[in-house]
Nucleic acid binder design. Structure first.
Length: 154
DNA sequence: GCCAACGTTGGC
DNA sequence: GCCAACGTTGGC
């Protein structure tokens, strides 16, 4: 069982949206490193920190699970989609995704600010590295545990 | 295979 | 809305 962090812009797809639909194909990732994490390393049942980016208070908003094995992102084949990739074919797909299922909302968003304030306890954390724009990234078990201690009691 | 130009991410 | 940081593209 591994741990991950996945970013989403809440204006586009928030933790509340995930709660509503329960399960969502994580389409639209068009970065090779992020794709490789989903394609090669993620397993059904892995745990996911659901991160809100590009918003007033960026931070971790909820918990989710990897709900499927990786499979080709169907939006790459759809000329109508924003994520259409003319170089991808069903025979030779270029982009892969996993389904993500809702687990729970955090009682309060664990803000990027508070993650930074605990940077020392978190150790080397990709999210906090300068210039990191990865939308799918690995989290260690100890980071996962540390982060959850930052959630308020009630 | 280099690298300038361009597009995107995402915090602020 | 700004812009630094970074990834990708494509000419050479």
């Amino acid at each position: 069982m591994r741990y991950w962090l996945m970013k989403s812009e809440p204006d586009a797809f928030s933790i509340d949206d995930l709660k509503k639909v329960k399960k969502e194909p994580w389409s639209g990732v068009r970065n090779y490193q992020a794709r490789n994490f989903m394609w090669k390393d993620m397993k059904k049942g892995d745990s996911v920190l659901f991160y809100h980016s590009n918003t007033k208070t960026p931070g971790i908003a909820g918990l989710a699970k990897v709900a499927s094995a990786a499979y080709p992102d169907p939006t790459q084949f759809d000329p109508e989609s924003d994520y259409w990739d003319p170089k991808a074919t069903p025979d030779k797909p270029r982009w892969f995704l996993v389904d993500v299922s809702f687990e729970r909302k955090l009682r309060q968003v664990i803000s990027l600010e508070s993650l930074k304030a605990n940077a020392e306890r978190l150790g080397d954390f990709t999210l906090l590295n300068r210039g990191t724009r990865l939308s799918v990234l690995p989290v260690t078990e100890s980071q996962w545990r540390t982060i959850l201690t930052l959630e308020p009691e009630s």
